[in-house]
């Protein structure tokens, strides 16, 4: 199954693209998305930095328009996952630098 991942504002600039479709496996949760799936598309340290920035509260994640706080959230086919800096546009993060 596939999910749609979008990067907004500063994240898009830093990563060099605004979105991508990512293949995930049945039973994957958000943590898996960062640690296993995104790392095959992005540099490993970028995927890890994104996860850390989320944990520090500097990056927010919305799944199908709802803010999520919990990395255990299970993914479903076609989920739309948005990653944005707290109030998009910010450049205080050190993702992949």
């Amino acid at each position: 199954m596939k999910v749609f991942v979008e990067f907004i504002g500063y994240l898009a600039r830093k990563i060099g693209r605004g979105w991508l479709w990512v293949e995930v496996c049945e039973g994957d949760d958000l943590r898996d998305l960062f640690l296993k799936r995104l790392s095959s598309w992005l540099e490993v340290d970028i995927a890890r930095s994104l996860l850390d920035a989320f944990i520090r509260g500097e990056v927010r994640i919305a799944v199908n328009g709802r803010i999520v706080w919990d990395l255990d959230l299970k993914l479903s086919d076609g989920d739309r996952i948005l990653l944005f800096p707290l109030a998009a546009g910010g450049c205080s993060l050190s993702i992949g630098s």
Partner: peptide, 23 residues
Amino acid sequence: SPLFDAFHRLGTNSVVYEFYTLG
């Protein structure tokens, strides 16, 4: 504040797309 840069950089426009996606 994590909001400082966003407001300074783009003003209230920084949230148009984000808020649209949040309903």
